[in-house]
Design a protein around this nucleic acid. Sequence first.
DNA 1: CGGGATCCCTCCCGATACTG
DNA 2: CAGTATCGGGAGGGATCCCG
Lengths: 126, 126
Amino acid sequence: MKNVTAAKPEISVQKCSYMRVLEIVSSKWAVLIIAALADGTKRYGDLRRRIEGISQKMLTQTVRQLERDGLVKRYVHDSVPPSVEYELTPIGQTILPHLFSMKQWVNEYYAEVERARQEYDRTDRK
Amino acid sequence: MKNVTAAKPEISVQKCSYMRVLEIVSSKWAVLIIAALADGTKRYGDLRRRIEGISQKMLTQTVRQLERDGLVKRYVHDSVPPSVEYELTPIGQTILPHLFSMKQWVNEYYAEVERARQEYDRTDRK
DNA sequence: CGGGATCCCTCCCGATACTG
DNA sequence: CAGTATCGGGAGGGATCCCG
């Protein structure tokens, strides 16, 4: 008779869906860029200004990755000075409700999380 | 008349809800641990075995952070050998539907994302 | 304006060894 | 069994300079 709690890694880092979520919306910048594009197309400089603290390197890099994943479309206008616009693709749009619902969750529970942290730091700290 | 696209960082790295989401469910390990605890209390070793590829350092560290945030409760049984169990708190439970729904999203769109990647690598690569 | 290319440094995290 | 402590490599990402 085998052990019921036998070793079977049910959550594989390689295959499981949760890893794929994080593979796509991995970085904080990815989430913020998608959020910034939620209400429509934006230019590069607009994004840069709207997302506080992002460096151009990370903006470019992350927006490229989102484009590669098919979540963001990049439009280059042949003009002087150059103008580049970014917008969410239909697939990119489909992730918005999930982000919104996560946002709702935070708005509802963040206060409790902060209380828990203070409690933890007060009692369990050495 | 002011510029309509004036510089107003609407998405602050410091304050916005999306950052708080990532602050709580930041790492991949956090998500995988919560997922592993979805169907009930687990012992330390069980978690370690169920989550493929996690080191004990990251398991301990992440589980501690989740405990600090009030998402996970840690039970220490005074026994020899020692036994420690982890389970989701009520707050921890409330995040599960969001994770599930993200999982659904991935299952629905991941194929398209992979297609987009291949397309991107084929055409836009140098 | 919208990037590309570099330098450089932090800190994440895995590996390893030890403990109550 | 369930951790803690320490070391070290490597990648993430910021700062800076340059370009079409």
